[in-house]
Design a protein around this nucleic acid. Structure first.
Length: 371
DNA sequence: GTATGCTTTCGGC
DNA sequence: TTACGGCCGAAAGCATAC
């Protein structure tokens, strides 16, 4: 029942990562509400909460809420600690932990700054040994970095992820081979990785709200509703079937977005745009990548988000091309929206470069062959 | 109708 | 009572080709 014919995948999720990093840096704040913020520098306190520790969460603070709102919630906790994000520091800690994880498995995939998947290939005894290894990893991170994490063990990435999400912080959850359905069945379909609100709504029309119901739904019904690609995929996921490999994946996009000092119209933020373009160009250059799709992100005074993008057949890396494209896209956006309501003013502007590929080494010889 | 690829929006942290 | 970041990948929406 628990032999090595099953895959062994471990999902690791570092608990309330940024805030916990701050607790490690200054242990005296451990018992206090700790709120890590992105300050926009418009006013002293404008900005949003990036993340917070569980003391703050217990009082109602959440990721993404305005800093002012968090301050209101915590107004009676005079010991509250508000700190600006320090990505450089978190990334340093993250890299050391990722090194530990990489050493402890046969296949490795970093999913984000605070999440990773590990796969073990050479466990030839009991499945329990996988959990034992996961437990050791948890302990090594605690010992060397003084950080807690949550761990999920399963026979594939989907199950490991569902397991780790089921208990946080400092969680440890194993879904044994054969126990997949037992674990998944009672959960709402929306919890399944890959099912968003729209898909959930669609499933409601055929009276499916739990994963267990989806797992038993007739193939044809799902294919009729979702097409012959997505239909069968959903049924497989509900049955805990996922063959996706644990492997490093290349970065898909870079983006940079900034909050303007004052809401502005098109002509007023070209200098900011140039700066962002320079940043992204440098990022591409140092990663030896080019981008075939340049996009813009615009957030209006009323906090409505708009985006536009343009693809080209050739890879782009230069600041000039990035800036030029972005500027044109903003110009088009303003012309479109001006017909609706004017004047359109923006609070935040950004550029995104995606559809990345390895930059081509331009060699004389390879070019000459064409002439 | 379905697959595919591109664009836009959403949602988590 | 309002308040409001920056970044990523996933999901949804849409156009086109067969």
């Amino acid at each position: 029942m628990s032999s090595s014919r099953f895959r062994a995948v471990i999902a690791v999720d570092l608990d309330y990562f940024y805030a916990q990093c701050e607790e490690v840096r200054d242990p005296s704040i451990r018992e206090k509400p700790v709120v890590v913020c992105v300050y926009s520098r418009r006013t002293e306190i404008s900005g949003a909460v990036s993340t917070c520790n569980y003391v703050a969460r217990g009082l109602g603070v959440r990721s993404g809420i305005p800093i002012v709102q968090a301050m209101r919630i915590l107004k009676d906790r005079t010991d509250s600690v508000f700190l600006p994000v320090d990505m450089e520091y978190y990334e340093t800690v993250s890299e050391r932990i990722m090194d530990i994880l990489r050493r402890n498995c046969d296949r490795f995939e970093q999913a984000s700054v605070d999440e990773a998947f590990l796969e073990l290939l050479k466990f030839d005894q009991q499945y329990n040994l996988v959990s034992a290894r996961a437990q050791e990893i948890k302990e090594e991170i605690l010992l060397s970095e003084k950080l807690t994490c949550s761990v999920g063990v399963g026979t594939n990435k989907l199950l490991a992820k569902m397991a780790v999400d089921s208990k946080k912080p400092d969680g440890f959850t194993t879904i044994l081979p054969g126990e997949e359905r037992h674990f998944l069945d009672p959960l709402p379909v929306g919890k399944l990785y890959g099912i968003g609100p729209k898909t959930e709504e669609k499933l409601k029309t055929i009276n499916v709200s739990r994963i267990g119901e989806l797992a038993l739904t007739d193939q044809k019904v799902l294919t009729d509703l979702f097409g012959k690609n997505l239909g069968p995929t959903l049924r497989r996921l509900a049955n805990g079937i996922d063959a996706s490999p644990v492997q490093e994946r290349p970065v898909e996009q870079f983006s940079r977005i900034v909050t303007l000092k004052k809401d502005a119209e098109y002509f007023d933020f070209q200098d900011v745009l140039e700066e962002i373009a320079l940043d992204l160009s440098n990022k591409l250059r140092s990663a030896k990548l080019t981008s075939r799709t340049i996009g813009i992100i615009a957030i209006s005074s009323l906090l409505k988000t708009r985006s536009r993008s343009r693809s080209s057949s050739v890879g782009i890396q230069s600041i000039e091309k990035i800036y030029e494209t972005a500027s044109e896209l903003f110009s088009e956006l303003f012309q479109e929206d001006l017909t609706l309501l004017s004047p359109l003013k923006l609070r935040r502007v950004g550029i995104r470069v995606s559809d990345l590929s390895q930059e081509q080494a331009i060699k004389k010889g390879s070019l000459e062959r064409y002439f």
